[in-house]
């Protein structure tokens, strides 16, 4: 677990990958959840992560969002280390200050939305810009109303989350994350907790993001059709590792690995 790799202080290249996992390890006690993960994501790329339950998909996003510490390796964002910081010419684990500086580039949407229940939709969106970015309220309101408009929630902007359906809450959550102007957006099974009839309204918003914004996106999903439609690349996770990755046409049309084939046929049968 404590394998020592010589990681560079910065990733060069023109341009460097927007996100780079280098030999990333994560374990809970003796349970290894991410096993020496290497993954580069280019700026503007939409990468989907698929795989069986417990294969470490959520963990990848949580580590990138710095919700928890990794046990080994380094994650870089935009060429600069996220989980570590340079000190005396070496990388050491990041402190809170470094994390807060570097985390601004990343936004995340959760399976269960996690909206703030005591704030209205608009207040949820304005919270980050006003409190964290120090933006003035009128400016933040304008930005957030524009985003709520984009996700089709402007007419519900003064409602509290408890008055909104799951699909509506998730669209507000997407607007809330976008209000911070992240370079990288993470989606963790954002449609899994939704009733089937409202899944479309959320996937439509994500489609719009892909076509109209130059965001880098990493999405964990169980919706194979959706992943096939919008991804530039699909990663199939198995046991904390990337078992196979490639363009959607390859992964869904002509998977090479047996585990990928088994997983996909099991998923198809379930439908």
């Amino acid at each position: 677990m404590t394998q020592s790799f010589d990681h560079p202080l910065e990733i060069t290249g023109t341009p460097p990958p927007m996100v780079s996992f280098r030999n990333v390890c994560k374990a809970y006690g003796s349970l290894v959840v991410l096993d020496n993960l290497n993954l580069d994501i280019n700026a503007g790329e939409m990468v989907s992560i698929i795989g069986p339950s417990g294969s470490g998909k959520t963990t990848v996003l949580r580590m990138l969002m710095t919700l928890e510490q990794i046990n080994g390796g380094v994650i870089y964002v935009d060429g600069k280390p996220l989980t570590h910081m340079p000190k005396h010419g070496k990388l050491v684990p990041a402190n809170q200050r470094h994390l807060r500086q570097r985390r601004v580039d990343i936004g995340m949407c959760f399976q269960h939305f996690n909206l703030f229940p005591h704030m209205t939709a608009l207040e949820n969106c304005m919270e980050g810009p006003v409190q964290v970015l120090g933006m003035r309220k009128p400016e933040a309101r304008a930005r957030c109303e524009e985003l709520l408009e984009m996700v089709g929630m402007i007419d519900k902007k003064d409602q509290h989350p408890s008055r909104l359906s799951g699909g509506q809450q998730q669209r507000v959550a997407i607007a809330r994350a976008l209000a911070m102007r992240p370079k990288v957006m993470l989606f963790d099974e954002v449609t899994s907790a939704l009733d089937p009839e409202v899944i479309g309204e959320v996937t439509e918003v994500i489609r719009k993001l892909v076509s109209e914004h130059n965001l880098t996106m990493l999405m964990v999903t169980h919706q194979m059709g959706f992943a096939r439609d919008i991804s530039d690349r699909v990663c199939f996770f198995y046991g904390g590792k990337i078992e196979e990755q490639g363009p959607p046409s390859q992964i869904f049309g002509n998977p090479e690995r047996e585990r990928t084939q088994q997983f996909l046929s099991a998923v198809r049968e379930a439908i």
Binding site: M65, T66, L67, R100, R103, V104, I106, G107, M108, F110, H112, N114, L115, F116, E127, G128, Q131, V132, R176, A177, M180
Partner: peptide, 20 residues
């Protein structure tokens, strides 16, 4: 999840306690 959403918005611990 409320803590995680606050971290994802890059709020500090104090902001998270006070606001969320």
């Amino acid at each position: 999840g409320q803590w995680e959403a606050s971290t994802a918005l890059n709020m500090s611990t104090i902001q998270t306690y006070r606001r969320v």
